[in-house]
């Protein structure tokens, strides 16, 4: 009897963690707000009007956002790179993202990654010869999975891959319980600023969290077995040390598991910051952004531009 009461109390406690889905006006979760890349072809370089044959020799960086985010995450980089350098930035929206919450819930991690390869192949087919990738957070995990699965084997290899706060291990370890908790917890709410709610899903359905957990578990296994980069590809990992979302040990796992074609380690830079995806400062709570964060963002943008322009 006592054991049953304890069990019941535990179940009620778990149900207490569940958050009902609420959507407010102006949130990305709702039907009115969608990612602008769905209607504006200029977000992706492969569909951008006005580019000429001569532009195909310019470096292109395909910039891909993380879980629940949208093309907004790399907007500052596009604005900076395209106004200060010849680098073109293609903002790719992950599958299932930037649309309604129902589409997000129904999508799998492999759906999320498809637009990355579609844009990469489209650029290569159009004759772009210097294509690189910048992947933040979950896009980092998706890129590693695509490398491990040989998705770049039949196309010219990307020149550079920049992984910004890639997630291989989540900081919040309760994500690892999602295969069990998804029967009790249907939704988790993560609130940011009002502007962030326009560009990130506020509601995180358990199905989507389970997909994320599956993806990063798969990537950890692939890294443990070893992932070898294509011959021409160089990787740099930027990782903040006090990241509230992607555990900093993710960088160590990538350092151990990812090698260049000639067996060398990849470049890793650990940064003393508490931000997740430190390259995005727009729409954050101003009190959470320091001068050092702004310097780190600009230094990273400059380094990425310099590397792809070499």
């Amino acid at each position: 009897m006592r054991a049953s009461a304890v069990m019941l109390a535990a179940l009620l406690l778990l149900w207490g963690c569940d958050s009902p889905i609420t959507v407010e006006d102006g949130w990305l979760d709702g039907p009115e707000v969608n990612d602008p890349s769905l209607t504006d072809p200029s977000y992706r370089v492969s569909t951008r009007p006005g580019l000429t044959l001569a532009d195909r020799t310019r470096p292109v960086v395909i910039a891909v956002h993380g879980f629940t985010a949208s093309t907004f995450e790399w907007q500052e980089f596009r604005d900076h790179a395209e106004t200060t350098s010849p680098v073109l930035v293609s903002l790719v929206l992950l599958g299932g993202h930037g649309r309604s919450l129902d589409e997000f819930r129904a999508s799998s991690w492999s759906d999320w990654g498809q637009p990355i390869m579609l844009e990469y192949r489209a650029l290569v087919a159009q004759g772009y010869t210097n294509v690189s990738l910048a992947a933040s957070s979950t896009a980092g995990a998706l890129t590693l999975e695509q490398l491990a699965s040989g998705r770049f084997d039949d196309v010219p290899a990307p020149r550079h891959i920049f992984l910004v706060d890639p997630i291989v291990v989540a900081t919040d370890k309760s994500l690892s319980l999602i295969p069990l908790l998804k029967y009790l917890v249907s939704n988790v709410v993560s609130k940011g600023t009002a502007e962030e709610a326009r560009h990130w899903y506020t509601n995180r359905p358990a199905e989507a969290l389970a997909q994320l957990n599956t993806l990063i578990g798969r990537v950890r296994s692939q890294l443990a077995r070893g992932i070898v980069l294509p011959k021409e590809t160089r990787v740099k990992v930027y990782k903040t040390a006090n990241d509230p979302t992607a555990d900093p040990v993710s960088a160590l796992l990538i350092y151990k598991g990812l090698r260049t074609a000639d067996g060398r380690r990849v470049e890793v830079q650990m940064l003393p910051s508490r931000l997740h995806v430190f390259t995005r400062l727009l729409a954050r709570n101003p009190a959470a952004v320091s001068e050092a964060d702004r310097r780190r963002q600009m230094d990273t943008f400059q380094e990425m531009i310099q590397k792809v322009s070499e």
Binding site: A241, P248, V249, A251, L252, Y255, V268, M270, P272
Partner: peptide, 13 residues
């Protein structure tokens, strides 16, 4: 305790 592999790069870990 896990091995940080390169104490210089992963000093913050």
């Amino acid at each position: 305790r896990f091995d940080r592999e390169d104490a210089e790069i992963f000093e913050l870990l």
